[in-house]
Design a protein around this nucleic acid. Structure first.
Lengths: 299, 299
DNA sequence: CGTTCGCATGACGACTACGCATGCATGCTG
DNA sequence: CAGCATGCATGCGTAGTCGTCATGCGAACG
């Protein structure tokens, strides 16, 4: 009973009404509005009650606009657009930026290549990437989302994006190295040298491949994974490729991998979210997970 | 941060915005919307924040629309009307009726004559009068407002509408009776006979006027006050007039009163409200009090 | 028939938005 | 020029709204 004296119903209900009209579904509108079906159902009911007209005919499955509903949609529909236009013209308000953090390697090899597409699809969302190798605290550092490479689920609200698979990669000119496993030893090995956490190292790989570790192989060390890959691209040696990060490079033929022994790692790429996500951040999250699923389908 | 993904602000804020535009005052809009100035101020602020534009320029006294504010008003202004029109056309929703109870006398002599004006001013409010002489319980009997004639404040939320003044009245053809106080005894005395509560009676008046009560005067008794007045109008005798109820009749010359001794009564007309009033009922209350104030000004 | 899909609804809970009291800046008045 | 009136902003505490969760119900699908 929040109506004004005149019989004008709550304007806010109209926004929901339009969303329902667009998808012709209460459940669907709920998703679009980041609400539950329940909430939308109630809003529509309250709107109908407040103006005393059935707007939708509820059917076995789905809903249908009544004639009154159609009139209302035709009347109100344009308003939303006009208002949006007004906001674009006069409004200077930007949504607060959504910040995603990831390691330098993930940022360079996975995030950045996808960024343009996102900005295209959501020009209104100001997405910022904070590339750090250190683990940041989402709550305290004003970061909304984090992509973490970790063994098992990290602490906090985390969803697995995709697992990891490790395989040696090198520039095409070195592909002869992969004819036999021992060929690897003929080239420098490029090592990802993250002091903080002992990732999969060449040492382990050599033992898995039953190759001698003496004399010690020549190692090139980098502390950012993208530099590891960069060096490999430049033909400086053989790197341990993390498949989700290097797959496009392999597909483009800019890196080659041996036919043998891709190894599923027990590490995975996890998406961490802060406790309470703003709707924009929610959108970013959904997009990340969608991209992640595309990746997963390769596994 | 209830906005949708697009930059459209809360529609509800717009309604408030329009109200402010109409009266060019935040305080004023508050009254119109039955809200406090505080609430309106916040809503406007939140609207401004959500679309990132100053809508009003705050000045020493009052406010001024900025150019953005003007644009918005011009854009949104018509919507409210169109929506109201839509509601009128398609909407069948009526506000729940507002019920006012009063004694039969007050209803006939004070309420009914004013009712047409109210219905004119508020065609959307369905005002119903329940005329009972018995005291009804507002909460339990689904009654919003009650006008009560009582000595001192009645129990509950009550405001004094106006006091009472008693004076003898009669039809013009009996006006000779008022030349001297004893002239009264030459005519039948019309008595309001409310068994439940002993109102001011002729017996008391005769003793006040120092007139003999023996032989007992001829009394006409009615149990509804409007019948008392009706009888007086028909020249059947002299009634004790309650000034607020009979003033119009005196002004029209349909009743006459003696020049002497109008007596302020310690009874008064009180407006009782139920605990939680709906906005419509609030409107009715305001109207009643306004009418009451007009009456008070005669006192 | 059991399952699924889509909407409605009862109970509960968090968060919003309101009211109250107050502050501040300005203008008006005697 | 002091004191009061007016109009908007704001801190704080709270009532009530609105959303979520869980569940129910009816129809269609395989």
């Amino acid at each position: 009973m929040r109506d004004e004296l005149n019989g004008v119903p709550s304007f806010d209900g109209l926004k929901t009404f339009l969303a329902v009209c667009r998808r012709m579904s209460i459940t669907g509108a709920g998703e679009a509005l980041h609400l539950t079906q329940s909430a939308v159902s109630r809003q529509i009911q309250s709107l109908e009650r407040s103006l005393g007209v059935q707007l939708f005919r509820r059917q076995h499955r789905g809903i249908k606009l009544t004639s009154a509903g159609q009139s209302l949609r035709d009347l109100v529909g344009p308003w939303s657009d006009e208002l949006a236009r007004f906001c674009a013209t006069h409004g200077t308000a930007r949504l607060a930026p959504v910040t995603v953090t990831a390691s330098v390697g993930v940022t360079a090899l996975w995030l950045l290549p996808r960024l343009a597409a996102f900005n295209n699809a959501h020009p209104d969302i100001d997405l910022r990437i904070a590339a750090h190798n250190r683990v940041v605290d989402l709550e305290s550092e004003d970061v909304d989302l984090a992509v973490r490479y970790s063994q098992g689920a990290p602490a906090g609200d985390a969803i697995l994006m995709f697992g990891d698979t490790i395989l040696p990669v090198a520039a095409p000119e070195l592909k002869s190295a992969f004819k036999s496993s021992s060929g690897i030893l003929e080239h420098p090995l490029i090592e990802f040298d993250d002091r903080a956490r002992p990732w999969l190292t060449w040492n382990e790989w050599l033992s898995i491949l039953e190759l001698p570790t003496t004399p010690p192989p020549r190692l090139l060390r980098f502390n950012h994974y993208d530099q590891v890959i960069q060096a490999a691209l430049e033909g400086q040696g053989i790197a341990l490729g993390r498949l989700p990060l290097v797959r496009p490079l392999i597909q483009q033929g800019r890196l080659v991998a041996p036919a043998w022994k891709p190894r599923k790692s027990d590490f995975g790429y996890w998406l961490l979210t802060r406790k309470r996500l703003r709707p924009e951040a929610e959108t970013v999250m959904e997009w990340l997970m969608q991209e992640a699923n595309a990746e997963q389908n390769y596994e």
